[in-house]
Amino acid sequence: MSHKGKIQLTLFFVAPPDQVAEGDRLFRSHGPWMEATHHREGDKALLSYNVSKAPELSNSMDPNSAPTGNTCFILSEIYETGAGVADHFQMAESSWQDFPALVKWMEKCTVTGLPAAPIINSLW
Rank of each mutant, 00 (worst) to 15 (best):
Pro118Gln: 09
Asn70Tyr: 07
Val20Ala: 02
His88Glu: 09
Phe27Ile: 06
Pro17Gln: 01
Thr112Phe: 12
Leu57Ser: 05
Gly69Met: 09
Gly84Gln: 01
Leu46Ser: 07
Phe27Pro: 02
Glu41Arg: 11
Ala86Pro: 00
Phe12Arg: 15
Thr68Gln: 05
Glu56Trp: 04
Pro115Phe: 05
Ala83Val: 00
Asn50Pro: 03
Lys104Pro: 03
Phe99Cys: 06
Phe73Trp: 07
Lys4Arg: 10
Ser94Cys: 06
Thr112Cys: 05
Ser29Phe: 07
Ala116Ser: 11
Ile74Asp: 09
Ala117His: 01
Phe13Glu: 07
Ile120Gly: 11
Arg25Trp: 00
Trp124Gln: 13
Ala45Thr: 05
Tyr49Asn: 07
Ser52Asp: 06
Ser2Tyr: 03
Gln90Ala: 15
Arg25Phe: 04
Trp124Leu: 07
Glu22Asn: 03
Met106Pro: 01
Leu46Phe: 06
Glu77His: 05
Met34Ala: 12
Ala54Asp: 10
Glu35His: 12
Ala117Glu: 10
Ala83Arg: 10
Asp18Thr: 00
Trp105Gly: 12
Ser76Phe: 04
Cys72Gln: 13
Val20Phe: 00
Leu47Ala: 06
Ala116Val: 05
His88Asp: 09
Lys53Arg: 15
Pro115Cys: 02
Asn70Arg: 15
Glu77Pro: 01
Ser95Lys: 14
Pro55Asn: 13
Pro118Gly: 09
Glu41Ser: 05
Ala83Trp: 01
Gly113Met: 04
Leu57Thr: 05
His88Gly: 10
Leu26Gln: 07
Ser58Phe: 01
His39Met: 03
Ala21Tyr: 00
Ala117Met: 13
Gly31His: 14
Pro17Thr: 00
Thr37Ala: 15
Tyr49Gly: 07
Val85Arg: 01
Thr110Glu: 14
Ser65Asn: 08
Pro32Thr: 03
Ala116Lys: 00
Ser94Trp: 08
Glu107Ser: 13
Leu26Arg: 05
Glu77Asp: 14
Phe27Leu: 10
Lys104Cys: 04
Ile7Trp: 03
Ser2Trp: 05
Asp87Cys: 10
Ser94Asn: 15
His3Ala: 12
Val111Gln: 03
Glu107Leu: 14
Ser122Pro: 03
Glu77Trp: 06
Leu123Ile: 02
Ser94Ala: 15
Pro115Ile: 10
Leu57Arg: 12
